[in-house]
């Protein structure tokens, strides 16, 4: 049951370079509230991909339109919730995020460099890890569910502060081991369908699998408001969903495998801009 082959890749890439931008017209641009975000950039010297495309370009016109306006973007309603959360004291310390961090704008640039090695903790930290570190250790509150609505709304709000910033995750130094693990996971076939992430997202992006238009699997748009479940989705939740789709036993969200994979996948997007909460199918 071999869905994808190398020869398909060639035709996929040709069709890709000639045609897939036609989804929304040759000149379709991602301009949100007047800010233009690049959706197509050249891969860096270490990039396995020559050209990087945001997931936005693979969606239909109607879906793309939903992201063009922060009012129409349904994900932003959850970002509003997070703005309230930011100001609300929680936990034994009686502090809110604002009490220590001031305005959320102070988070600008952070999303673009995560996940990263946290030297103090001696571990790879994702945005969710940083948030829970503050929630538990500085606020004295119960930790938030990693892929839950409250957490993802906050990840969305903080990601929004980095909208337009270029993804630049560090893959060397102490993060190197996680990077290598993530890379290995990315290229390893698993599951009943015996597929690796690369089979779809590297070998066949731009091509259709049934009616789904395969993207490069970039995460610069996460958390993503998915039309499918009408909420903001975490990176790890999406990884889990993908693994279930190929009938593999998924790794656990917030576990080491997905953290490593997140670092690797983020690095594949080095050069693309953060989009703030995106809208995807």
């Amino acid at each position: 049951m071999n869905i994808v082959t190398k020869t398909t890749m060639i035709s996929g890439i040709i069709a890709l370079s000639l045609g897939f931008a036609a989804n929304a017209g040759e000149d379709a641009k991602l301009v949100i509230n007047g800010q233009e975000l690049a959706t197509h950039v050249k891969g860096g010297p270490d990039s396995p991909l020559d050209e990087l495309f945001s997931g936005w370009v693979f969606r239909t016109e109607e879906t793309q339109a939903l992201q063009l306006d922060d009012f129409e973007n349904p994900g932003m309603v959850f970002v509003d919730h997070a703005r309230d959360t930011w100001e609300t004291a929680e936990g034994t310390a009686g502090k809110s995020c604002a009490d220590c961090h001031g305005d959320v704008e102070s988070m600008a640039g952070l999303r673009a460099v995560l996940p990263r090695w946290n030297a103090d903790k001696g571990a790879l930290y994702t945005m969710e890890d940083y948030i829970n570190d503050s929630v538990v250790n500085h606020m004295g509150a119960e930790k938030w569910k990693y892929t839950g609505a409250k957490m993802q709304a906050m990840v969305g709000l903080i990601s929004l502060q980095s909208r337009g910033h270029t993804v630049a995750v560090e893959t060397g130094g102490p993060a190197a081991a996680a990077y290598e693990l993530g890379k290995e996971i990315y290229y390893t076939r698993v599951g009943q369908l015996d597929m690796a992430c690369s089979n779809c997202h590297e070998d066949n992006y731009g091509v259709y699998i049934r009616a789904d238009h395969l993207s490069q699997g970039q995460i610069n748009g996460f958390p993503a408001y998915r039309l499918k479940n009408a909420k903001l989705n975490a990176v790890h939740a999406r990884f889990k969903g993908c693994m279930k789709n190929i009938r593999a036993t998924p790794y656990k969200p917030a576990g080491d495998e997905f953290r490593a994979l997140e670092l690797y996948v983020a690095s594949r997007g080095n050069g693309l801009p953060i989009e703030g909460p995106s809208v995807r199918n």
Binding site: K228, C242, N281
Partner: peptide
């Protein structure tokens, strides 16, 4: 209404 191959 399409049925996605993988994500849908």
């Amino acid at each position: 209404v399409t049925i996605g191959g993988c994500g849908g």
